[in-house]
Write a protein that binds this DNA or RNA. Structure first.
Length: 271
DNA sequence: GTCCAGGATCGGA
DNA sequence: TCCGATCATGGA
């Protein structure tokens, strides 16, 4: 981390921590007063200082543009949050807790693979499994560990090998996800531009991808903010304090969902 | 030992 | 269409 830092201006409400550690992505680790991780083939050490994010470790000429986009810093989340609150006042507490979250612009394949792994699993174990996959067949990124593997590299593994690493019954699903990308069945352009019902159906045609994982891929991998992943926590909230909410049809439903997810998972912790 | 986790699939009602 | 059983694994 010897390269000079790039400073990216951000809205003062932005929370780098909640964005990187809140369950969208499983590759960022706390480091000193910031976070270390890899997106695509780029490693970086990110820190937030008030209205800026400092980027170190990426000497690429377009590092500024790349990380601005990855962190979605050009989108006005203050406006999204206010419209969500206007639509659903019960969101007040959740927005106070998770309102600094941005939706990352992750690689579609990484989101597909990560959330196939995530099914019926807890976050710490998902992180561990994703890390194993990267170490196994991801390319080394100087000073930051291994990149998320290419789909072709995963497609060349075997179900037995993955199962032996602890992937359990998901091993076959991970292989299938990789093959769907290699074969072109995972059509990013279609998923990005089709009506969301069609995009969901296309994703659920991949074995191991159900309704929840499909929406995670759409939200986190294709940046479709109208997607609305329902995991066990969100289902509880929808049957409890958010019963009858209109948020699911909100154009930025996925953002509101992320506030709720952060809120219900952390409200019993001091911070 | 039991329960749970950013669930999906399958067979049977 | 809906419901329950089942699927590995490890931490609480």
């Amino acid at each position: 981390m010897t390269s000079s830092a790039i400073l990216l201006p951000c809205q003062s409400s932005f929370s780098l921590k909640e964005t990187l550690i809140g369950g969208q992505c499983f590759r960022w680790k706390p480091h000193l007063d910031g976070f270390c991780g890899i997106s695509g083939s780029r490693g970086a050490y990110l820190r937030q200082k008030d209205d800026c994010v400092a980027v170190e470790g990426d000497a690429s000429p377009d590092a500024d543009r790349y990380w601005r986009h990855y962190l979605d810093l050009d989108v006005d989340y203050d406006s999204i949050r206010e419209s969500a609150l206007a639509l659903e006042p019960r969101l007040r507490e959740a927005a106070a807790r998770g309102g600094g979250i941005h939706i990352l612009n992750q690689q579609p394949w990484e989101a597909l693979c990560s959330f196939v792994i995530s099914q019926n699993n807890n976050i710490s174990r998902i992180r561990s499994l994703v890390e194993k996959l990267c170490s196994l067949c991801g390319e080394a990124v100087d000073g930051f560990g291994c990149a998320f593997p290419e789909p072709a590299a995963v497609a060349e593994l075997s179900e037995e090998r993955l199962a032996a690493l602890g992937f359990g019954y998901r091993a076959g699903y991970v292989m299938e996800a990789a093959r769907s990308v290699v074969s072109g069945r995972f059509d990013v352009d279609f998923l990005k531009n089709s009506p969301i019902a069609e995009a969901r159906a296309a994703l659920q045609a991949i074995r191991g991808v159900g309704p929840k994982v499909a929406d995670c891929v759409l939200l986190y991998g294709l940046h479709r903010l109208d997607a609305f992943p329902r995991d066990v926590w969100i289902k509880r909230a929808l049957e409890g304090e958010f019963r009858g909410t209109a948020l699911e049809d909100f154009p930025f439903a996925g953002v509101a969902q992320q506030y709720i997810f952060e809120y219900i998972r952390t409200k019993r912790q001091p911070e």
